[in-house]
Design a protein around this nucleic acid. Structure first.
Ligand code: FES
Ligand code: FES
Lengths: 144, 144
DNA sequence: CGTTAATCGGACAATTTTATCCGAAATAGG
DNA sequence: CCTATTTCGGATAAAATTGTCCGATTAACG
């Protein structure tokens, strides 16, 4: 469904959001530890999210990553997915035709766009804040 | 969403079904031409589907691929996807946790399983026959 | 029986994705 | 100013996916 990079990116963002709620800034090492991901690869993804203004990074000692309180609610999953995986999942044909277009649809088009639009809607409506809350109350987990 | 192999596999299967409705057996070359896919790679995928008893192959001159009339209705997309991509898409965690399990869910679990089960249901309920029919009446296309 | 046309199967190659390494730049704190 | 700690950015490596090649096998047909 999502690329590994995107999965790590979402998990990392949720963890950063959780810690930012308590004013803590976190390092790549801590993030990778807490979400069980490869450190250097995670660092690359965080750079990408930082450049996309989804998370905020601070260099030097006491530096690390954080998410502004306001962004915690306004940043939705669809932004993270788009920043990392592009918009293939929102626009692409389920059977791999070069373009998905109702004027010349693939055999699966009608059924596929239903699913795709549900997924898209779900990602658009899900904020980091919401996901971080589930974590905070101990209902959900970022590794197992 | 699906791998390239799976996309080609579905497109090929639908084309074979369409031709089998008229009693025509088709070669890899014709299939690859009609669905716009790499020939040798497509051949590999067809072998896989043949071994999974989803399509039927015949060697030698006048040989090729076909789908028995009965199978055309009983073969659903979920079988093709499972044969090629495995069941990650049916069982895997959306955020990449090692296992998807409601007892220790990831932050996205509840929302993700909804989408996943809709997708799963759609694939389970869609037959090759149904898709081939859309093609036959000129409503849908396998390449663009 | 020999030729020809087709799939089968294994080895190989190219590309993309995932992952690692390391030096550079920034900055807090002594 | 100096040192230590952190992200940044580019090069590189490993693994997985995608794609190619070719000889073996099968079978139709003259
Ligand atoms: S054309 Fe295939 S999903 Fe729209
Ligand atoms: S645990 Fe992540 S989707 Fe179920």
């Amino acid at each position: 469904m999502f690329s590994k990079a995107c999965e790590y990116g979402i998990r990392a963002s949720v963890y950063i959001a959780l810690q930012s709620m308590e004013g803590r800034r976190v390092s790549v090492n801590e993030i990778a530890e807490e979400i069980d991901s490869p450190i250097a690869f995670t660092a690359k993804i965080l750079q990408q999210l930082s450049r996309s203004n989804i998370i905020h990074s601070v260099k030097g000692p006491t530096g690390g990553f954080e998410i502004e309180r306001e962004n915690m609610e306004s940043v939705k999953l669809n932004m993270i997915v788009k920043a990392i995986d592009g918009d293939d999942i929102y626009k692409g044909c389920g059977l791999g035709l070069k373009e998905c277009n109702a004027d010349k649809p693939c055999p699966l088009h009608d059924k596929f766009v239903d699913i795709r639009s549900d997924l898209s809607k779900m990602l658009r409506n899900t904020s980091l804040y919401e996901l971080a809350m589930g974590l905070e109350v101990g209902l959900t987990y970022l590794k197992r």
